[in-house]
Amino acid sequence: MPHANMLTVVHHDDTRTSFKDVRYELHRDGIRIWSDEGEHVVTDILMTQAYRRREATH
Rank of each mutant, 00 (worst) to 15 (best):
S35A: 10
L46A: 08
Y24G: 06
G30H: 00
G30V: 10
S18N: 02
L46P: 01
L7I: 04
F19W: 03
Q49P: 01
Y24A: 03
M47T: 11
I31N: 03
D14H: 13
R23V: 14
L46W: 06
S35L: 04
T57G: 07
V41N: 06
I45L: 08
V22N: 02
S35E: 04
K20Q: 15
D14P: 01
D44F: 09
S18A: 14
P2R: 12
P2L: 05
H3G: 09
V42H: 03
W34S: 13
D29G: 11
P2T: 10
E39N: 08
R52D: 12
D13I: 11
Q49V: 15
M47H: 09
G30E: 05
D14M: 08
H58Y: 14
I45V: 15
H40P: 00
D13W: 13
M47S: 15
E55D: 07
I33W: 11
H40A: 00
S18T: 15
T8G: 06
T57E: 09
H27V: 10
F19K: 02
S18W: 07
E25A: 11
T57K: 06
H40W: 13
I31W: 02
R23D: 14
L26Q: 06
H12V: 11
L26W: 02
H11E: 12
E55H: 10
R28D: 10
Y24V: 01
A50W: 01
Y24L: 02
T57W: 01
R53F: 13
D36T: 08
G30R: 02
I33A: 06
D36E: 05
I33P: 08
G38R: 12
F19L: 01
G38I: 15
H3W: 14
L26S: 13
I33C: 05
V22D: 01
M6Q: 06
D29H: 06
H27S: 15
M1G: 06
H27F: 13
E39F: 00
F19G: 00
H27P: 00
G38V: 15
F19D: 00
D14L: 13
V22T: 07
R52Q: 07
H58P: 12
L26T: 09
V10H: 14
V9P: 03
Y51N: 06
E37P: 02
K20W: 06
E55Q: 14
E39Y: 09
S18G: 07
T43C: 04
Q49R: 13
D36I: 12
R52I: 05
T15C: 09
D13A: 06
H11F: 13
A56S: 12
L46I: 06
S18V: 04
T48I: 15
V9S: 07
D21M: 02
T48F: 10
V10T: 15
A4Q: 05
D21A: 07
V42P: 00
H58E: 12
W34R: 10
I33K: 04
I33Q: 08
A4T: 03
